[in-house]
């Protein structure tokens, strides 16, 4: 794969102007994801209502363009969705990034498929997936979730503040 096809305008744009960047004042759910390989870290906070709907979501942290764009687009994608729909997206995105998803089969990823090229850069898969693992940890209030995906090394996620 030519790397230029990964650093597409949409990804560069989300990196430059990340959406939903910051921290929620009254979050119902929270988690922090770490990438031990590069020292990157990402905080995700959520407001999930009693009907299990994600009303608000925000992220902040220190990360590369791939991770930041992935987080920015993820927050845009799951805002207003039910928790169940968010989990479906998490699974589909993980499969996309690790090359297990056939993009031509029906899925809910929409513009998130710009990340399909990441499957050819195994060392960068964890950058794209870190926000999604962190979201999963936040939604499930995991004390200390290690993202045991099919790639190594894995990002480490915890919801310690």
């Amino acid at each position: 794969m030519h790397t230029n096809s990964l650093y597409q305008e949409v990804i560069l744009d989300h990196n430059r102007k990340p959406r939903n960047y910051g921290k929620l004042e009254h979050a119902s759910h929270h988690a922090t994801g770490h990438n031990p390989l590069c020292g990157d870290r990402l905080d995700i906070s959520l407001q999930v209502d009693e009907r299990d709907q994600i009303n608000a979501i925000a992220f902040q942290g220190e990360s590369c363009a791939i991770c930041k764009a992935s987080a920015s687009m993820m927050t845009s994608a799951v805002k207003g969705k039910s928790r169940l729909d968010a989990e479906t997206l998490i699974n589909e995105f993980r499969d996309l990034a690790t090359g297990k998803l056939d993009i031509n089969s029906p899925n809910h990823l929409g513009r998130l498929t710009v990340f399909s090229g990441i499957r050819d850069l195994p060392t960068r898969v964890k950058c794209a997936v870190l926000p999604w693992h962190t979201l999963h940890a936040a939604l499930n209030s995991l004390e200390n979730a290690s993202t045991e995906a099919d790639h190594d090394p894995v990002p480490v996620v915890s919801n310690n503040t």
């Binding site: 790397t3 230029n4 590069c38 020292g39 363009a65």
Partner: peptide, 22 residues
């Protein structure tokens, strides 16, 4: 303004191997 991992990936596109990380 550019994260080392993005630098490493784009340099790799030109065949250049550097280490990025801590």
């Amino acid at each position: 303004g550019i994260h080392p991992h993005d630098i490493g990936t784009i340099l790799n596109q030109d065949g250049i191997a550097v280490r990025t990380g801590h």
